[in-house]
Amino acid sequence: DENEERIRAFALYKGIDPEKARELWERGEINKDDEEKAWREYK
């Protein structure tokens, strides 16, 4: 689903483990601007 892809995109963008990215996502600790930037680059 799209959230999974967004988490993966963010992990790649930040160079972090996707599981770590998922934890940040679930806790609401992902910066929305960074997340959008990562998503645009990923697509």
Rank of each mutant, 00 (worst) to 15 (best):
Y13H: 04
D34K: 02
F10A: 02
E5P: 04
E26I: 13
G28M: 05
R27I: 05
I16M: 09
D33V: 10
E23P: 00
D34Y: 03
I16D: 00
I30A: 03
E35I: 15
D1K: 11
P18N: 11
L24T: 01
L24W: 04
I30K: 02
D17V: 06
L12R: 11
E2V: 13
D33E: 14
A21P: 00
P18K: 10
R40Q: 13
D1I: 11
E4Q: 07
G15S: 06
P18Q: 13
K32T: 09
A38P: 02
K43H: 12
E23I: 11
R40C: 15
Y13I: 04
Y42P: 03
A9F: 07
I16F: 04
W25G: 00
E41G: 05
P18S: 08
R8D: 03
F10L: 14
A38W: 09
R40E: 12
D1F: 11
E36P: 01
E29S: 06
Y42L: 05
R27V: 04
G28D: 04
N3L: 15
L24M: 15
E26H: 10
D34G: 02
K20Y: 14
A21T: 01
I16L: 09
E29V: 07
E29M: 13
E19P: 04
A38E: 02
E4P: 03
A9R: 07
R22Y: 05
E35W: 15
R6G: 01
A9T: 02
E41R: 09
E26N: 11
L24I: 07
D17I: 05
N3I: 15
K43P: 05
F10G: 01
E19Y: 08
W39K: 03
A11M: 02
K20R: 13
Y13P: 00
E26P: 00
I7F: 05
Y42Q: 03
R27K: 13
W39N: 02
E23A: 10
E41I: 11
E4M: 10
E36W: 07
R8W: 14
E29T: 05
I16P: 00
R8F: 14
K37T: 11
K14C: 15
R22H: 05
N31M: 08
D1S: 12
K20N: 07
R8L: 15
F10D: 01
R22I: 04
W25V: 04
A11L: 01
D33W: 09
K32G: 08
E36C: 14
W25A: 03
R27M: 09
F10N: 01
E2G: 09
Y42N: 03
I7Q: 01
E5L: 11
Y13V: 03
E4D: 12
E23Q: 11
E2M: 13
W25C: 07
R6L: 10
P18C: 15
E29L: 14
N31L: 09
K32Q: 11
Y13W: 14
Y42A: 04
E23Y: 08
N31A: 11
K20C: 15
G15P: 00
E41L: 13
W25Q: 03
E2I: 13
E36R: 05
L12C: 15
A9I: 08
E2S: 13
W39Q: 04
L12A: 13
E19C: 14
R22A: 05
R40A: 14
G28I: 02
E4F: 09
E23R: 08
Y42H: 04
R8H: 10
A21E: 00
Y13T: 02
I30P: 01
D17F: 04
R8I: 14
A21I: 04
K14L: 15
Y42V: 04
E19A: 13
D1Y: 13
A21N: 00
L12Y: 12
R8M: 14
A38N: 03
E23L: 12
A38G: 04
F10E: 01
R27A: 12
D1R: 12
G15R: 06
W25I: 09
R22M: 05
F10Y: 15
A11S: 05
E35Q: 12
W39V: 03
E26F: 12
A38K: 03
E19K: 11
I30Y: 11
E35N: 08
K37R: 14
Y42T: 04
E41A: 14
Y42W: 13
A38Q: 03
E4S: 09
A11N: 00
R6P: 00
W25L: 08
P18D: 08
E2T: 13
E36V: 07
K14I: 12
R6E: 02
E19M: 12
D17Q: 08
E2C: 15
K43N: 12
D33R: 06
I7K: 01
K20G: 05
D34A: 05
K43I: 14
N31K: 08
I30S: 02
E35R: 06
I7V: 06
I7W: 12
Y13M: 07
R6N: 02
I16S: 00
R6H: 07
R6K: 09
K43G: 12
K37L: 12
K20W: 11
K14Y: 15
D17S: 15
K37H: 09
N31F: 06
K20F: 13
R27E: 04
I7Y: 05
L12P: 00
K43Q: 13
A21K: 00
L24N: 00
D34H: 03
D33L: 09
W25T: 00
L24C: 09
E4H: 07
P18V: 15
E26V: 12
E19Q: 12
K14D: 01
G15Y: 01
I16T: 01
K43T: 13
L24Y: 05
G28P: 00
A9N: 04
E35F: 15
W25F: 13
Y42G: 04
E35P: 02
R6S: 03
E29F: 08
Y13L: 06
L24G: 00
P18F: 15
A38I: 06
G28A: 05
R40G: 06
D1E: 12
P18Y: 15
E26R: 11
G15T: 01
N3G: 08
E26W: 10
I16W: 05
D34S: 03
K20L: 14
Y13S: 04
A9M: 06
E41W: 15
K14P: 00
R40P: 02
